[in-house]
Design a binder for these strands. Structure first.
Ligand SMILES: [Zn+2]
Ligand SMILES: [Zn+2]
Ligand SMILES: [Zn+2]
Ligand SMILES: [Zn+2]
Lengths: 130, 130
DNA sequence: TTTAAATTGTTATAATATAACACCATGTAA
DNA sequence: TTACATGGTGTTATATTATAACAATTTAAA
């Protein structure tokens, strides 16, 4: 079991927004949405995002520069993430497959090196778009 | 077998630079390096990069916004890529493991969907840094 | 040769992210 | 209690990454 991090005010505001969003969010659209709550500057957003990523409450989709709430509690420990991304509508889904995560955690490169931390992004078409 | 793309002048200049670089390169450091060859504007660099990525001659490391020459000829067909990234020195190595690529190409998400296109970034410490 | 597609050159601007500094809250150790 | 360390906040300014829009040129087919 992982340790609970109590969120600070800014972190909570931004986490709630991302968590409720039906789509991954961009940093500046987060900024726009929270301006009425007194968060006015990009840095305030990025600092909260950094922390939320660090503690595993959200993930950054690196190929898209968007943020999504985690829906797989084991991420908060492992930093091992996998997503599918629709190339038409940009829908992102977090993948939680024990088989996949075991395979990747046990994968050894040609130097015999293992990696417990990774990020995998699958690209294709979602149900609706294909 | 894949079709050979003859590179245009700008594409060739930029590919050569990246290919010879011992490290992955950032777009604006590429721009700086090729200014003596007459490439003056960011767009000229980004257009060449886009094309080179599209035809699989280089890859973008999404978590770092850097570009690296491909060292795995099958990428030029598949768009299925995997890298290891050192979190200290930022050394990037392209992984070509038949086992890994087969596993990922055959992976099905819970809707039974397969993805032939993916990007995997492993994080850890390289030989020198650990 | 005509035409379509791709590439180039250029200026300007958008989108993403961090530096630097002052201040404040909270916990903890002397 | 006081000092100190740690982490969060607010703010201004700036750095970094990437694209829009438009005109001109080259290339490769039809
Ligand atoms: Zn997660
Ligand atoms: Zn879709
Ligand atoms: Zn490759
Ligand atoms: Zn290293």
């Amino acid at each position: 079991m992982h340790k609970e991090h109590p969120l600070t005010k800014n972190q909570q505001i931004i986490f709630d927004l991302i968590d409720k969003s039906p789509e991954p969010m961009k940093a500046y659209s987060i900024l726009f949405s929270v301006q009425k709550k007194g968060i006015k500057a990009p840095l305030q957003v990025y600092r909260a995002l950094d922390k939320l990523v660090e503690i595993g409450k959200i993930h950054k989709i690196e190929s898209r520069n968007v943020f999504i709430a985690c829906h797989n509690s084991s991420c908060q420990v492992s930093k091992a993430t996998a997503f599918s991304i629709c190339e038409i509508c940009e829908k992102v889904t977090e993948i939680s497959s024990t088989g996949l995560s075991k395979y990747l955690a046990n994968f050894k490169d040609k130097d015999g090196m293992k990696y417990s931390k990774y990020n995998l992004e699958f690209f294709g078409l979602c149900k609706k778009c294909r």
